[in-house]
C-alpha cells in the first residue's frame, strides 16, 4: 500500500530540532499491548494533533510524554530529557491541560493563578520571564471579568479556559492539551483557536493536542498523527494525508437554480466536460478533495482491515 511507504519515510524532523522524540514506544498492561512501537517527532513551535478512535492509545501516549506514566519499552525524549526520570526544572518547562479537573473549587480565579505561577518564579530566565503576569494571562483567556470569582462557580467553558490558563502560567516550552475544546460553544472554540495560534507565534511553544474534532485538528495542527490500535497509521499535514488516500473528489455546482453533486476519482476531465457543455450557466462551482473526515475514516478503516 502507498500509505505504508509514506509512513516508513515518516515526516522528517532533523534530530537537533526535536522537542519530542519518540522511538519504538511500547506499552503493555498485563498481557494486553496498547502501544505497538509508536515513533514520531515534533519540532519546536509545531502544533501536533494526535487523532484516533477511543482506546487507540492517545491518552497512554500523552501521559508517558507528560511523565505521568511509565512506559514498557522504547526511547522517549521530551525537551532533551527522558520524562520518566525528569526533575522539577523539566516540569517547569512543560504545561499540562487535562480533561477532568475539578480541583481548587474554593479558590478564586486570580488567587489560584497567582499561587501556581509562584512555583515558576525561580525558573525565570532572561529569555523567558516566568510566570506569565496574571493580569495579561486572564486577558488572553478571556477571564478578566471573573478574576475574583470562586472557581466552583465557573461554567464548563470558563473552567476549561482556566485550565488552559493554568497550563500556560509557567510559559511552557511544550504544552500538552487533552481534548481542549470539549464543551466549548463555537465562539469559545474560535477564541481558543486564536489563543493557540498566539502561543505558537509569540512564544514558539510546541503543542501536542489530542482531539476528536477533525475540523479542529485541521485548523490548528501543522501536522496530524493518526493513532489506531496502538500504532501510528498516518503522519503528515491534513493535505498530505488526504493525498495519501486515493479517493473521489466531490464536485458541486448549480445550473438554472438547480443544485448538482457528482463524485469523480479525477475531477479535471469531468469539470472540463461540464464547462464545455454548459459554459457560464454553471454557477457556484466547487471541487473538494477528500475531507479530513473522509481521509480519517478511510485510514482507520483500512488499518483495521489489515490488522484482521
Amino acid at each position: 500500500m502507498a500509505l505504508t511507504g509514506a509512513l516508513a519515510a515518516g515526516t522528517q524532523v532533523p534530530p537537533g530540532e526535536r522537542v519530542i522524540d519518540v522511538r519504538d514506544l511500547r506499552m503493555r498492561y498485563g498481557t494486553k499491548d496498547v502501544l505497538h512501537g509508536v515513533s514520531f517527532a515534533a519540532r519546536r513551535g509545531e502544533v501536533l494533533a494526535l487523532l484516533g478512535p477511543n482506546g487507540a492509545g492517545k491518552t497512554t501516549t500523552i501521559e508517558i510524554l507528560e511523565g505521568f506514566r511509565m512506559r514498557s519499552s522504547g526511547e522517549v525524549t521530551v525537551l532533551d530529557t527522558d520524562p520518566a526520570r525528569a526533575g522539577e526544572a523539566w516540569r517547569a518547562r512543560v504545561g499540562v491541560v487535562l480533561q477532568s479537573w475539578r480541583d481548587h473549587g474554593k479558590w478564586r480565579v486570580q488567587e489560584l493563578l497567582d499561587h501556581l505561577g509562584a512555583y515558576y518564579r525561580r525558573y525565570s530566565t532572561d529569555l523567558k520571564s516566568r510566570p506569565w503576569p496574571v493580569g495579561d494571562l486572564l486577558e488572553v483567556v478571556g477571564l478578566s471579568a471573573l478574576a475574583s470569582t470562586r472557581i466552583a462557580r465557573l461554567s464548563g467553558g470558563q473552567r476549561r479556559r482556566l485550565d488552559v490558563a493554568i497550563g500556560i502560567v509557567g510559559r511552557p516550552d511544550l504544552l500538552f492539551l487533552d481534548e481542549p475544546t470539549v464543551g466549548f460553544d463555537p465562539e469559545a472554540r474560535r477564541e481558543f483557536h486564536d489563543l493557540v495560534h498566539r502561543l505558537t507565534d509569540v512564544d514558539d511553544t510546541t503543542i501536542l493536542l489530542t482531539t476528536h474534532d477533525l475540523d479542529e485538528a485541521e485548523k490548528l495542527a501543522d501536522r496530524i498523527l493518526i493513532l489506531n490500535d496502538g500504532r501510528i497509521i498516518a503522519d503528515g499535514s491534513a493535505d498530505d494525508l488526504s493525498r495519501q488516500v486515493a479517493g473521489e473528489s466531490e464536485i458541486r455546482w448549480t445550473r438554472d437554480g438547480q443544485r448538482f453533486v457528482h463524485s469523480a476519482a479525477n475531477p479535471t476531465p469531468f469539470v472540463r466536460e461540464l464547462l464545455l457543455q454548459h459554459g457560464d450557466a454553471v454557477e457556484d462551482l466547487e471541487v473538494r478533495r477528500n475531507s479530513l473526515e473522509d481521509t480519517y475514516i478511510r485510514l482507520v478503516h483500512d488499518s483495521e482491515g489489515r490488522a484482521r
Binding site: R91, L98, W101, R102, H104, Y123, G170
Partner: peptide
C-alpha cells in the same frame, strides 16, 4: 478527596508542587 478532584495531579504537574 483532593486526589479525586485532581488537586494532587495539579500539584504533580507543577514544579515542586507536591512539596508545596
Amino acid at each position: 478527596v483532593e486526589r479525586e478532584d485532581g488537586t494532587l495531579l495539579r500539584a504533580k504537574a507543577t514544579p515542586h508542587g507536591m512539596n508545596g
